[in-house]
Design a protein around this nucleic acid. Structure first.
Lengths: 219, 219
DNA sequence: ATATTTTTTTAGACTAACCTAAAATAATGA
DNA sequence: TCATTATTTTAGGTTAGTCTAAAAAAATAT
């Protein structure tokens, strides 16, 4: 079983990855957690041993599948508790966070299962953030950007998360526009690049940074 | 703010005092907490520094007023959470303890206040144990002395509130000592005297003043 | 009253999670 | 390319909470 501190590292790494840092640097992690980089390095070595993260010195960090699963469960617990505090205990939105930060580390399967039922299976927390589901399979709900799909999936572009001219110009240069059809030809685990074809045209290799900002749906 | 571990020491000391160990020995504390006596000694020194316990080497330990207050707050939280788990989350009596042991260490005044309201101010937990009130002190005194029990109750002496020689000599003269069994035979509304039997021996009539200083527990 | 046993404390060591300072590596830029 | 700067890691130290083994104190028994 993980300590609350280890869980917080996993959660912070997840949030930084989600925000586009890929991989997460030791410094950004240390800054987010308000600790020194040397302390982060220590912990990263240990989490790597436990197979929760991919870490090589000087190369930054990403989460393993197991690590991602744990991160999502912690966020699930956090958001369910926030829901409970606001809906049942008269907390206001700005009051919930500190308490939920403590409650998210309580270990009990049954507790969360029953809390979910008690709250009538909410899908969003009081701030409107989606509540990850208990099982990984149902996580499809969250799958909105290109990075969340797998080899062979046929998708269609429905929007972008970054609307800077730089990004849009780049998309245009590789033939991606709103409504463009995309097929995932290959996922490269090594550098997280993705090989795609657009509207049936020749293959294009895109980086994780580009993929993360491309909102798509199953086609 | 105390760590969960420090809180557990305080709680264990309180429970041992309540069960009649006065003062609590290092060994009994270590045994209850499933740690070695040397570890307990270390912690006792620290809690003594923090003015939560009275401790002198080789002399055992009792709680200060502050320590007692903290112990009761932890027990209050524990029992309120147990109530919540059983009443709202379909936990059975035997399932609640481990989870409540974790929840009792969450720090938030508002959380407990609101949980209490949400549960409609319960006075006993699912096992029938009294839930200490938020505005302590009185709770400790009132729930545990002889005057708060009713006809037919079987009790056992766990301590006294007045340790003057006068009082102790009197108790001795009517056959009351630590660990003496007491049964309440009759409560006289007229003059508040109480008819009791001690260790099954012939009846004794005691005054309200005597009863108020006799700390007992259900037997 | 003294010897034996039990209890408690001290001394020294370990782990997790942090720190600072210095060294190693990577990134930047002239 | 090479020097400078920024990032990351290593080395060594700290605190909380635990441990074992040995010493000290208290309790018990002869």
């Amino acid at each position: 079983m993980l300590s609350a501190i280890e869980e917080n590292y996993i959660k912070s790494i997840y949030k930084l990855l989600e925000a586009g840092h890929r991989p997460v640097s030791t410094n950004s992690l240390a800054e987010k957690m308000d600790i020194k980089a040397a302390s982060a390095t220590d912990m990263l070595k240990r989490l790597n041993e436990k197979l929760l993260i991919h870490y090589q010195k000087y190369q930054g960090v990403t989460l393993t599948e197991k690590g991602t699963h744990i991160a999502l469960q912690i966020i699930r617990k956090h958001r369910l508790w926030e829901m409970f505090l606001v809906e049942k205990l008269n907390f206001t939105w700005d009051e919930v966070h500190d308490v939920a930060e403590q409650l998210e580390h309580i270990h009990s399967e049954k507790l969360i299962q029953e809390l979910d039922r008690f709250l009538e299976y909410p899908r969003f927390d009081p701030h409107g953030e989606p509540i990850p589901s208990a099982s990984l399979e149902m996580q499809y709900d969250q799958r909105t950007t290109l990075v969340n799909f797998k080899k062979g999936d046929h998708l269609r572009v429905t929007g972008v998360k970054d609307d800077s001219p730089l990004y849009l110009t780049y998309l245009d240069s590789i033939g991606i526009d709103l409504d463009t059809k995309i097929e995932i030809l290959q996922l490269n685990e090594y550098d997280n690049t993705i090989l795609i074809s657009t509207n049936g045209r020749p293959a294009n290799l895109i980086s994780i940074q580009v993929a993360q900002n491309l909102i798509v749906k199953m086609d």
